[in-house]
């Protein structure tokens, strides 16, 4: 229940936090510029409107069961918190990455990652986040966050990550 209390605290903090929109700067969120370099100011993790705050305090990741794209209860709590934050900080763009563990074929895992990312997207939209801000991508099993041939890593790698940028 550690996660729940943290999320609750964060939600409370968000309500209390009266903050301006994230600083401006050029919009480098260019999907078409594969060779280009985009920069995103992470900001001060102590600033509730910063990307660093989102990544570390809100939590950018939800996990899934094997071959499933169903959101767990914990996952829904995290995503609700994400939605509150995203609605408070509407200038940020959102990319949802879907990932799979390595216990499947490459093609199926790309499709599974796409399904997971879409599930998160649909949840955030239902929580009021503008669909126009969100894009989704699947990496299948190509980008594990932990590398080991064991349950511990597979569990962590079945995930959707909400990547925020300005």
């Amino acid at each position: 229940m550690k996660l729940l209390s943290k999320a609750t605290l964060v939600a409370a903090a968000l309500v209390l936090a009266a903050c301006a929109n994230p600083r401006g700067g050029a919009n480098d969120y260019e999907y078409g510029a594969g060779a280009g370099i985009s920069s995103t100011a992470l900001g001060d993790p102590g600033d509730p409107a910063s990307i660093a705050y989102f990544n570390t305090t809100i939590g950018d990741t939800v996990n899934f069961a094997v071959n499933s794209s169903d959101l767990t209860e914990q996952g829904q709590i995290v995503l609700r918190t994400q939605a509150v934050w995203l609605n408070r900080n509407p200038a940020y763009s959102i990319l949802i990455e879907g990932h799979a563990d390595e216990r499947g074929t490459r093609e199926y895992n790309i499709a599974l990652g796409a399904r997971r990312a879409a599930r998160v997207e649909q949840f955030l939209i239902a929580e009021g986040v503008s669909a126009g801000r969100i894009r989704t991508v699947s990496y299948g099993k190509e980008r594990p966050i932990e590398v080991c041939a064991a349950q511990r890593c597979w569990d962590l790698n079945r995930r959707a990550v909400t990547v925020v940028s300005n």
């Binding site: 093609e107 790309i110 499709a111 796409a114 399904r115 997971r116 599930r119 649909q122 989704t136």
Partner: peptide, 8 residues
């Protein structure tokens, strides 16, 4: 295969 809105 083509994925859009989670459908493949």
């Amino acid at each position: 295969s083509l994925s859009v809105n989670g459908r493949t």
